[in-house]
Design a protein around this nucleic acid. Sequence first.
DNA 1: GTGTAGTGTCTCAGATTTGTGACATAATTA
DNA 2: TAATTATGTCACAAATCTGAGACACTACAC
Lengths: 184, 184
Amino acid sequence: MKDTEQSIIEAAILIFNEDLSAPLEKVADRAQVTRRTLHRYFKDRKELMDKCQKEIRKACAIAMSDAYYASANPRERLETMFYAGLDCGSKNTFLHKLHTLHDHKHQVANEECSEYDHTFELWKGNLQVLLTKGVINQGMTVDWIHNFFQSVVVVFINSQQNGALDRAEARQLAWFSFSKGIGI
Amino acid sequence: MKDTEQSIIEAAILIFNEDLSAPLEKVADRAQVTRRTLHRYFKDRKELMDKCQKEIRKACAIAMSDAYYASANPRERLETMFYAGLDCGSKNTFLHKLHTLHDHKHQVANEECSEYDHTFELWKGNLQVLLTKGVINQGMTVDWIHNFFQSVVVVFINSQQNGALDRAEARQLAWFSFSKGIGI
DNA sequence: GTGTAGTGTCTCAGATTTGTGACATAATTA
DNA sequence: TAATTATGTCACAAATCTGAGACACTACAC
């Protein structure tokens, strides 16, 4: 079933997001399959990792793109895209993490990197518009805001994991912290 | 030399913060020693990890405690302690990460956990005071703010790593994002 | 029922990681 | 200089992780 492949990918994103070098057995366990089954779907660790990235980019890029075109003006867009990003959850943060690793040399030549850049192109473009319009605090930089955004997503995920807040409540808090935090 | 032990610990914190299951060779490399030397100072991975936690708690607890007593009132304290936390950098975030791992069951009985709680006792106590006084947005919870704080530290660290902003500038931005983000 | 697709179990070889012993070398101190 | 200390090099066994073959079992389709 295609279902198994998908659930392994989802499991891998969760596990690797916490522990990049975690043994594949952990991923298999989380996906409730055997390591043997995992290997039937993915040749090796690298292939699994690649599929994870592909999956993430697909999901995030679509969500962000939809959100972008769903709104009419930059200010509204920001909020819509913010919630879209929240809903991508750990997919979002994992991708971001991979591209900010200390030994990761970000370069446009690398296809992975350029795809990463592309995933957040609309988002960052919109940020830039709001920055030049003065809607966002002028001292900010696009990169700071983007990192800050990713961080707030992590806070949101945490709050959901330990079940301290219900989803709607947490979403509200997240938007509050983010929007105020960038000076809106 | 005590120096070597310390630099291995520092290296381990940096490496493990990015990749919890990273091979010890990576830690040794970062510390510019051989794996053999690393093992002379630390019996095994677990002992190294424990020493890391001890080091972190010592550094963070002292920094936070100093900051606490250096200020006269809760509002001022918040800012002083915030900067103290920033300066602890990845020590701060690594400790927090360890105690929010998905399979980590936080419990007071566990000595590690109670020490962790103690490290941020003053900080959280002060947050609670500001919350009940209404200085901080009432919809917030102490846990949310604490997680949010940790996230902002990550943003700060990132900005320092890629050298996008100088330290003073980044500190200012961090405080802005944090304080506004909790509704001050 | 028979066939087929998906998965689990068991097994195993190869790779990687880990921890340590033995000894050499460089640096420091007496 | 001689002794001591810290570290590096090499070697090695044990443990763990990885990827795959062989075969059994289950469910579902025909």
